Simulated scan of single mutants.
Amino acid sequence: MSQSFPLQRRHPDDLIVGLVSVSDRASSGVYQDQGIPALTEWLGQVLTHAPQIVSRLIPDERDGIAATLRELVDEARCDLVLTTGGTGPARRDVTPEATLDVASREMPGFAEQMRQVSLKFVPTAILSRQVAVIRESADHAALIINLPGQPKAIRETLEGLRDASGAVQVAGVFAAVPYCLDLIGGPYIETHPEIVKSFRPKSARRATDGNQQ
C-alpha cells in the first residue's frame, strides 16, 4: 500500500523511523528478509511509545540506496533511519558509500562503538564498514545508522553487552540515540531501561523520563 508523504505526526514527540534492508537476494525474492521484521520487533520492545515505521527492501545499488535514504528523510520526514546489510568488504556492499552520499555530517562514534560491541563476539567485526550520519535540510534533520544484516548482530549492537547479573559491560549504540535526536531537533523519545538505558544530561531530561542516571 502506498503512503503519502510527509506522514502526519500523531503528537509532537511522535517518532518516525525509516527501516531499509539492503539485499540483492531478499529484494528479488530468493529468501525472506529478516532485518526489517527484527528491527520492527525490537523497536516495539525498547521504546515506551510505538513509532511510525516506513520500510523499504532494496537491492545493493549505490544510487538506489541513496535515493531511498533521501526519500525517507526528505519526503517521509523520518527522524531516524536504520539500514541493515551491505556493510562488508564485498564488491556489492555499498551501503556505507550510499549513506555518505546523502550525509550533511558524519557521526563516527556510532560506528566505532558498534565495532567494539561486535568484537566481543566475533573477530570479523573489523571487516564491518558501517557508518552513521546526519542528513539535514533547512527545517528537518535525521540520524541515519548502518546496522549489521543478521538479527542477532543487530540486537547486540543496539543493546550492548551485559554480564550475568545484567550489568552493562559494553554500551550499545541506541543508548545515545534519544539525546542525539534531541540535539538535532527531533522528538523526545524514551526507552525501557531494562533493555536500553538511554543517557541524557540532567538538564535535558524530562521529569517523567524513566532513564534517570
Rank of each mutant, 00 (worst) to 15 (best):
R200W: 14
A171Q: 05
H140V: 10
R205F: 10
P151W: 12
E159A: 15
K202D: 15
E106C: 07
R10V: 14
V173S: 03
R62P: 02
K120R: 13
T95D: 01
C180K: 04
G86R: 00
I126C: 14
V170H: 02
P187E: 09
D74I: 11
V170T: 08
L72I: 09
G85P: 02
G18N: 02
L19R: 04
A207Y: 04
V22I: 15
A138C: 08
L119Y: 06
S165N: 12
S198N: 04
D33P: 01
I145C: 02
G85W: 00
M1F: 15
K120W: 06
L100V: 11
G29S: 14
V133K: 03
W42F: 15
E97P: 08
D79L: 09
L57T: 10
P6W: 14
L19N: 03
I184T: 08
L47Y: 05
A207I: 09
D139R: 15
D14K: 08
E159S: 14
A141L: 04
S21Q: 10
F199S: 05
E75N: 11
A76P: 06
I195S: 10
L39Y: 01
S165H: 13
P193M: 14
Q52K: 06
V168C: 08
L82M: 07
A66C: 12
P123A: 05
T157M: 06
V22W: 01
A167S: 14
S118G: 15
G186D: 03
P37T: 12
L143F: 07
H49T: 11
P123Y: 02
P37R: 08
K120H: 13
D14C: 15
S2F: 11
S137D: 14
V46K: 03
G166W: 09
G172K: 01
A164P: 04
L39D: 01
L15W: 00
G64P: 08
I58P: 04
L181P: 01
I184D: 03
D63A: 15
G44T: 13
T124F: 04
